[in-house]
Design a protein around this nucleic acid. Sequence first.
DNA 1: CTTGTTAATCGTAAATTTACGATATACGAT
DNA 2: ATCGTATATCGTAAATTTACGATTAACAAG
Lengths: 111, 111
Amino acid sequence: MALSRKEDFSDRDIQLAEWCKAMAHPARVAILRTLALKKECICGDLVIDLPLAQSTVSQHLKALKKAGLIQGEVDGPRSKYCVHQKNFEKFLKAFSDYGIRLSEKIEISSC
Amino acid sequence: MALSRKEDFSDRDIQLAEWCKAMAHPARVAILRTLALKKECICGDLVIDLPLAQSTVSQHLKALKKAGLIQGEVDGPRSKYCVHQKNFEKFLKAFSDYGIRLSEKIEISSC
DNA sequence: CTTGTTAATCGTAAATTTACGATATACGAT
DNA sequence: ATCGTATATCGTAAATTTACGATTAACAAG
């Protein structure tokens, strides 16, 4: 944003927005999907899977890590990644916890 | 992105990423939270709540609408908005449907 | 110690997002 | 018809994101 207004929002809204932003790119969704499926994965395999340069994949991994959705571990010359279970759980829970839920079957016919 | 690579990803990944992108800003999280709570809300009330100019709020509403997470309805000179229940449900379900879930309690100690 | 492999970081260009004020539009009320 | 209110859209500047190639760093193998 031009003039950052982040400080004017609640920490909870900022946190949820950050998690969402981390998933706001198909490559990062694909990465998380892969990690959730395979439990863990080395960077190189992700590079092969994705239609992106190695440096770009690395950047996306960094973004997911910074948001706390994944964890990385160095394994010799390569890097293993996996989903950060605890934080990902918090992320999913946030939607309901924050009142953003599909409460009781209220049928809104007009809109 | 510089050179759009969106077409190289699956429609499902693109859709989930788009929904996430719609929630990737505190203002839009706040809007959705408010709409979920109040069931519906007119634009002007959101403008009062948020620390943003009217035109900016309108822009955020447009983004949420474009992503399909909310619906708008004209009510005389004002606009009423509400959560798009069906799509929001799809959004939340996407996380589990797409395999991005916290499957069985696998304790990952190392990473 | 040199070489090859893997991944992170740097520098950078192009696209997109975010924010605002100004303007346009739509409608109710007078 | 005119005025006031509510909202959307336009134009635009600044910040951020995305992508890439090139470089650096870290490590294993020889």
